[in-house]
Design a protein around this nucleic acid. Structure first.
Lengths: 317, 317
DNA sequence: AAACATTAGTGCCAGAATGGCACCAATAAA
DNA sequence: TTTATTGGTGCCATTCTGGCACTAATGTTT
């Protein structure tokens, strides 16, 4: 380990806000960070961090060093990247982050095939519905529902994601079939809910073309698509689901779309996100493979929902 | 050692044109270079050098990496430099190169005093009349006679350097005192001569203000000022000497200036040269100390030559 | 207040990396 | 042909790294 690496380590420490988190990020012991930062200070002959036993703050010198460290990291990444352009065959480590559902159902098949074709590429995929900072955590590629805000990243739309309102036939028999959006308010709903996002209403476009929100009554909440599906299949709730929940193998036979005449806007599309720079060969190839698998024009999940093209469309005049 | 260091090592290898020279520059074994370049290639997954057993050439990838390595080195130097600005006391290694005479007579006293004041600063001085590439060899400061051409460096004039024509009284008694410049042609001369430079004529300004060259007849040539002086003090040659040859302790008593009415232009001044960027504290302080020692207005060597102000001046009208 | 958890820092130690030496192979120079 | 120089490799002592266990200090929770 030498000066540049130590500077980048300092940068990570500052980005993470603690020695421990930085160590976790690198999967190394905290003590290593402590020692290396110490060495860096000795090397530069300057105190970089004012430590209190449980936290730290940057000194003026430290702040300057962190800025330079960011430049160094960028330049170094750029250099390595440049070298990778000379690779004929992709190699190295591909780090992906995605929501669990996308990862399990749409990326794992791609990964399995990809690694057969390119055994030299290692893959690390973090499935987590929490959105992470790709840059500081070092991810090459993210798959997300909804366009991310971070402008230092490139977001590329992979596939549209229609919205569906579904229930089982037995549910309809039991509770009666809703005829209007308002009817949904009185029916038990299963609804996606995570620490960041809760579905408590359905967005739709009314007869006059105005966007509306129809509140629902969630009796079951989960962040797990399978759990929601299981609940619905027990005939005790309807649910509003984005189409990408219907991956291959999902039992859609029992499910009946409700209120199919209503105009539901597409839910946030599925995006691939990557840093704003030239992609290494492995990343570009993987992205292509994923796009191909999910479907260039018609998303793969729509294959499992017959007639989806006609559902929830704007009313033809 | 990690990627950045290895890249910089590659850069040095390319700059030096060989593994061996690069190793010599760092005072490490050749094998280390060989191994580290190998690791770098493995790391980047790209062949950087096409080797023939006795030399090498850059691959396209290698050439790109070298460019990036130069950026990295610069940025890293800049970063370390920035840290040094926070030093209250100067520390670290100060690397100086100078001609032998300047080093021995005008820098050693400064260094000795400087290290008493700042014991934390190590000094390495290379005395060599050959001009070296400061950047690639890593020197902080050079002292040279004559303005260097390299525009990536800053040259700062330290002191003027008048020209003198001298001989001993016994020489004059033996050979007769020259009355005109032309008379010098027939007298035996001791003349500075190195692999790069030979004095074979004296430049002067004639009565009409035109620059002229008076050829001389060197019977003794050396690149060593003391040797030239010794020759002259044996009363068998006159010599044309820049004033900075007359350091403290040099026996000037026996020497008589000849043709003092002739207008001799100043010889190339003494310059301090340093890289075109902010100087570390130690370098700036040393430069100040050297300038102070040599003399801000009147060069130190002129103190040993009484009446020099009046010698070899343009003719007062 | 007291117990607890989390933070940075340190000493110790096994394992990895470094760098020097000796030697080899190939090629250019003498 | 001989010699010298260059890059490359295997071996080995030394150094460095990174993990573990433990300490000290400071918020947090009970």
């Amino acid at each position: 380990m030498d000066t540049t690496s130590r500077l980048i380590m300092l940068l990570e420490v500052v980005e993470q806000g603690s020695f421990s988190k930085a160590a976790e990020l690198r999967n190394i012991d905290r003590s290593v960070i402590s020692k290396q930062i110490g060495k860096l200070e000795e090397e530069l002959g300057v105190r970089l961090l004012n430590r209190t036993t449980r936290s730290f703050s940057l000194t003026a010198a430290g702040a300057e060093m962190v800025k330079k460290a960011a430049d160094l990291r960028l330049l170094l990444q750029d250099t390595v990247q440049l070298a990778e352009n000379y690779h004929q065959e992709p190699r190295g480590l591909l780090r992906i982050t995605a929501s669990s559902y996308i990862g399990q159902h749409y990326l794992m098949p791609v990964i399995n095939d990809f690694q057969k074709r390119f055994p030299q590429v290692s893959v690390e995929i973090r499935m987590d519905d929490r959105v992470v900072d790709m840059i500081s955590e070092g991810y090459d590629l993210a798959f997300r529902v909804g366009e991310p805000r971070d402008s230092s990243l490139v977001a590329r739309k992979i596939a549209r994601n229609k919205m569906l309102i579904l229930a089982t036939q037995r549910f309809i028999d039991t509770y009666g079939e809703p005829k209007t959006m308002a009817d949904l308010a009185d029916l038990p709903a299963a609804s996606y809910s995570s620490s960041h996002l809760r579905f408590e209403a359905i967005s739709y476009i009314d007869e006059n073309g105005k966007p509306q929100e129809q509140p629902i009554t969630p009796v079951f909440r989960s962040n797990d698509a399978e759990a929601l599906m299981s609940k619905v299949l027990s005939h005790t709730a309807f649910f509003t689901a984005p189409a990408f929940f219907f991956a291959d193998g999902v039992d859609t036979e029992q499910l009946v779309p409700l209120l199919t005449h209503v105009n539901l806007p597409d839910y946030s599309a599925v995006y691939a996100v990557y840093p704003h720079r030239d992609l290494p060969v492995r990343t570009r190839l993987f992205l292509d493979a994923a796009r191909h698998y999910i479907g260039e024009h018609k998303p793969r999940w729509e294959l499992n929902i017959p007639g989806i093209e006609q559902l929830y469309q704007p009313k033809a005049k």
